[in-house]
């Protein structure tokens, strides 16, 4: 039973990280119908930014809490600026091009960013400092769920609540929903659609960066390639839940995280990816639009 609960938490933790990344995929897809393949790299860049900033702040003797908060902020802002720039440079000029063109541009961006970090940081794994201390109140449960797992769960939950409120209640959120549903009409009611698209990239990138920071601190090492695997997994989760749907991305992420955790725990860790992607294949066969996605007719 204890083992089960341990795996459960491990799955929820994975799921939370996937969700933070998958939200960016699904939001961008919902608004401009593009799979932003460079999104995994944004997550990776968030982790590297966090590494640089947290190291610097620690050297300057900031207290841990300040290091954590400032690092998260810096990673989110820096990654967001990457997301914004990528959209402006690689996707906006192709907005009225055939759908395949921005997709290829996205893959190109992904390769470019990976190699840029590879050149700047080498391909070696670099150690990442643990930013979450062992909480005293967590000690009795430490053999089941670690403090950093708990931090991941809490921070991701908060991020998702804030995002939901933003989309539901703010003016920007309304503009995002309207743009996702009918872009031409959004223009006609006076929404600045270009701004909405920029904000979507900024929000998604900031969430991915927070995910990158959390997982890097949890695992303790990063390299230029971590964005690829995480990105593909999060993309799988988004498709599983129904790409374009925000609750779908979260649901898909948790299903994927839990599947992986239980498969690893009860079968073998070698089969982790086999289970994850088998799940994707099954969903695509039996429910092609994803769990919460709507089967839509291609708009003419």
């Amino acid at each position: 039973m204890e083992y089960f609960i341990e795996l459960l938490f491990s799955g929820l933790t994975r799921g939370s990280i996937y969700a933070l990344i998958a939200l960016g995929y699904t939001m961008v897809y919902g608004i401009i119908g593009l799979i932003n393949f460079a999104h995994g790299e944004i997550y990776m860049i968030g982790a590297f930014t966090a590494l640089v900033v947290s190291t610097a702040l620690t050297i300057y003797g900031f207290p841990l809490l300040a290091v954590v908060v400032l690092t998260a902020l810096a990673a989110a802002v820096w990654a967001a600026s990457y997301g914004y720039t990528i959209e402006r440079l690689a996707y906006r000029p192709l907005r009225s091009a055939p759908r395949l063109s921005p997709l290829i541009s996205a893959i190109g961006m992904s390769i470019f960013l990976q190699n840029y970090v590879l050149l700047a940081q080498t391909s070696d794994f670099v150690p990442f400092p643990a930013l979450v201390p062992e909480f005293a109140f967590m000690e009795p449960y430490a053999h089941i769920v670690g403090s950093s797992d708990m931090a991941i769960l809490v921070v991701s939950a908060l991020a998702m609540i804030i995002l939901t409120c933003m989309i539901k209640y703010t003016r920007t959120g309304k503009a995002m929903r309207a743009t996702a549903q009918d872009q031409k009409m959004a223009l006609l009611v006076g929404i600045n659609v270009d701004n909405v698209i920029s904000i979507t990239f900024i929000t998604g990138s900031a969430l991915a960066a927070i995910g990158g920071l959390l997982i890097a601190s949890h695992i303790g090492q990063i390299n230029f390639y971590i964005g690829f695997i995480a990105g593909i997994k999060a993309f799988t989760a988004a498709v599983l839940g129904g790409i374009g749907s925000i609750p779908g991305a979260v649901l898909g992420s948790f299903i994927l995280g839990l599947t992986e955790a239980f498969a690893t725990g009860y079968v073998s860790s070698d089969y982790e990816d086999v289970f994850a992607f088998s799940l994707l294949v099954l969903i695509l066969i039996f429910k092609p639009a994803g769990l919460l996605g709507k089967a839509t007719i291609e708009k003419v």
């Binding site: 009409m185 009611v189 006076g190």
Partner: peptide, 26 residues
């Protein structure tokens, strides 16, 4: 200048009240 486009272009998942609210976006 406001336009009611051909085919109406209602935001399908927004409620009637939210659709009206979008009209007053600016």
């Amino acid at each position: 200048i406001s336009q009611v486009p051909e085919g109406r272009h209602i935001f399908p998942e927004l409620t009637v009240a939210e659709n009206l609210d979008m009209g007053a976006f600016l």
